[in-house]
Amino acid sequence: MDTKEAVLDILNELTGEDLSDQMDDNLFDSGLLDSMATVQMLLELQEKTGITAPVSEFNRDEWSTPNKIIEKVESLRNE
């Protein structure tokens, strides 16, 4: 499973919405993600992609849209 597919699958599970046509929409401003969903998202991403993304280092601005989430996951995979 590629990064984009994994991220969209996780976001779909968490939000109940297909976000593939909303790749640059802010998920926090729209109310689709909140703090609890963020923790769940990070745990799922760690499980499905093998990244390490501690909640303590979470910067909401870097994870606010599906495209930014994909970009962040890919950068963490390359560390």
Rank of each mutant, 00 (worst) to 15 (best):
M1H: 07
D2C: 08
D2P: 10
D2L: 05
T3E: 04
T3P: 06
K4Q: 09
K4C: 06
E5D: 14
E5S: 15
E5M: 02
A6P: 11
A6C: 13
V7D: 05
L8Q: 00
L8N: 03
L8M: 11
I10D: 09
I10W: 08
L11I: 04
N12V: 08
N12R: 15
E13Y: 06
T15M: 12
T15W: 14
G16A: 00
G16S: 09
G16Y: 05
E17H: 11
E17G: 03
L19D: 00
S20G: 07
D21K: 12
M23V: 05
D24E: 14
D24L: 07
D24M: 08
D24G: 10
D24H: 13
D25Y: 11
N26A: 12
N26S: 10
L27C: 08
L27G: 06
F28A: 03
F28D: 00
D29I: 12
G31E: 10
L33E: 00
D34M: 06
M36H: 09
A37H: 11
T38D: 02
T38H: 03
V39G: 01
V39D: 02
V39S: 05
M41Q: 10
M41V: 07
M41G: 08
M41P: 04
M41A: 07
L42Y: 02
L42V: 06
L42G: 08
L42T: 05
L43G: 15
L43Q: 14
Q46K: 02
E47G: 07
K48D: 06
K48C: 07
K48T: 09
T49C: 13
I51W: 00
T52M: 13
T52H: 12
T52A: 14
P54H: 11
P54M: 08
P54G: 09
V55Q: 13
V55D: 08
V55H: 08
S56W: 09
S56F: 07
S56V: 11
E57W: 09
E57P: 05
E57C: 03
F58P: 07
F58M: 11
N59A: 14
N59C: 12
R60D: 00
D61Y: 11
W63G: 04
W63L: 03
S64H: 03
T65F: 02
K68R: 13
I69S: 03
I70A: 00
I70T: 07
E71Q: 08
E71T: 12
K72I: 02
K72A: 12
K72N: 15
E74R: 00
S75H: 09
S75Y: 04
S75Q: 07
R77T: 01
N78V: 07
